[in-house]
Design a binder for these strands. Structure first.
Lengths: 332, 332
DNA sequence: ATGAAAGCGCTAACAG
DNA sequence: CTGTTAGCGCTTTCAT
């Protein structure tokens, strides 16, 4: 592997000139030619490590997420990676497996790696990252979830609205007993959706029974057991909505298993995954989030910070969700 | 951010001693204490960029894959990331969106980034990466797919066996006209599965009609249109097997849409995704790959290379697939 | 066990 | 436009 010095030797020019050339500066046409030839001939490739040491930039962004084996996150990351690489950044991915200690450790790891910026889907209120985050100076954009009380850019879905409108839609269709399967307490999105739901219960005069709110852990099994709880109630909900993809799968498995007809016996609204929705019989009514927009906006905000054109105040964007109506809700 | 020099100033020791200490070398107990205190007090954190420049190691592994918004890859990456981070490596992910030029560009990018090693799921025979790959000296482990003629470690599924055995299973159940929906020609796994299928056609005396082999592009739509082609044949296959998750979804959508009963009218075997399989009615018989084992083995092989205990000859491991029998195949 | 010094490959004043 | 030079933060002989 040849270095800038080898090029200098080969061309007779100084390393400074070569550095300038490599960074798009002006050099004499003849020297440009010479350099192009030398670069090709010596198969020169920039050592980004060395450059990074000098410039204090790694052109690397850390992406810290709960898990990777989850279609919601992996789709989001896919869009993020495309947007970042288009801007010349590489993406270091760390998953913390839903664990607060791992979350902190991975954050520390990324910071230590010298990432220029961070895209972060934090655990939620049980997160231990607040201090480390505020102490470090790397720009952070929260994605999908955020912390209460932290001062940084965030790009979120309108989770409150998603839950509120979904319950509203069910109410319009005559449902009064509406079950909801939420994520764990303390997870930002789950809490917001919870509030949207309870507000809808008030506004639309829905049945306020506490057992209509079940909490899963976003896994398939938990979706299944939550739905089974609903089915075992003396007075079942007439409709259930589930707030992520995996739990939606679990809920449907429970219904299949119990031989419950959708939507005749129970109406159901799923979350996040259009593809799944179409394979189910009947096709599922679902709430989808604008993952592409969220990813692109988050990357944009981060790049603005990295390039220093952001000003002092933070930006928080919320994207509305979309209700895609199919056949899994019965009008009663 | 404090550096090793600040520590030197603070403790009165030399940078050499401090470097030694930081790397686990022996120092006098009293100095050790002093150093621990200094590190804490000055909030010292190693600059990995600087270290990397000197040691020529980045403790970073590149992972180059076709796409990220695909449950097969994202699950694989999830396992890979866990294994790599346990070994102290960070994972730079690049997706090439199934495009040969992007594949080459991203490979070049990763090599330029100074990754210590590479985990690579290449496009296949239309890949343009051969030269760059052999020219570079970074250790590479192929995952899931490999190149013909390249000399490097690889961890694969037994794709030939998967297709052969699946066709065999269908044949045992009395099927003679067996349709298969494969990936594109030139993709390693698709080619191997193709061979497995045609060998089974010979060995089990199946209907050898060429139209029974359809080629999709691994997308949902292509799965759907391939299945529609089967359905529109005057003489339909009695069973179809589909060779990835997304195309399986598409095939099922086609069946739902055409109101075709599974397995009474068409038997079907899917691929890769156990979760999906359970939400379908009836539950789907599927072929699954041992993603966790593949990921762990690939990381192990790469780490062995990075640590220099590998010897000269390459290792190619093949993991068998597993047929999970449910109710989507009819005995005829 | 510790320290002095050289240098990894590159950039950025500064001078010419 | 080009060259000289001084480092970025760390590791690594080689002395001591």
């Amino acid at each position: 592997m040849s270095t800038i010095k080898d090029i200098a030797k080969y061309t007779g020019l100084s390393v400074a000139t070569i550095s300038k050339y490599l960074n798009g500066g002006n050099v004499l046409p003849e020297n440009r030619k010479l350099l192009e030839k030398a670069v090709k001939k010596l198969d020169y490739r920039m050592n980004h490590i060395a450059r990074g040491l000098k410039t204090r930039k790694s052109l690397t962004v850390g992406v810290l997420i709960p898990r990777l084996n989850n279609i919601f996150y992996s789709t989001l990351i896919s869009h993020i990676e495309i947007a970042l690489s288009a801007a010349g950044y590489s993406t270091i991915i760390c998953a913390y497996q839903d664990d607060p200690d791992t979350e902190l450790a991975r954050l520390d790891f990324l910071l230590g790696k010298g990432v220029d910026g961070l895209l972060f889907i934090p655990l939620g209120s049980s997160s231990k990252c607040f201090n480390l985050l505020t102490a470090s100076n790397v720009p952070v954009v929260m994605v999908d979830r955020t912390f209460e009380g932290i001062e940084c850019d965030a790009v979120l879905s309108d989770n409150f609205g998603a839950a509120y409108n979904t319950a509203g839609y069910l109410s319009q269709n005559g449902h009064r007993r509406i079950g909801v399967i939420l994520g764990p307490e303390g997870v930002y999105t789950a809490d917001e959706r919870h509030q949207g739901y309870t507000q809808a219960v008030r506004d639309f005069n829905l049945d306020p029974e506490p057992e209509l709110i079940q909490r899963g852990n976003y896994g398939i099994d938990s979706g299944r057991s939550c739905m089974e709880k609903f089915l075992s109630m003396k007075n079942r909900p007439s409709a259930v909505f589930v707030t992520n993809y995996e739990m939606t799968i679990g809920a449907i498995i429970a219904l299949e298993y119990g031989n419950i007809k959708i939507p005749d016996e129970v109406s159901i609204i799923g979350f996040d995954n259009l593809e799944l929705a179409q394979t189910i019989k009947p096709p599922l009514t679902i709430v989808t989030q604008r993952l592409n927009k969220i990813a692109v906006e988050a990357v944009k905000l981060l790049l603005d910070r990295l390039r220093g054109n952001s000003g002092d105040n933070v930006t928080v964007k919320k994207f509305s969700t979309e209700l895609i109506v199919r056949d899994s809700v019965k009008r009663i």
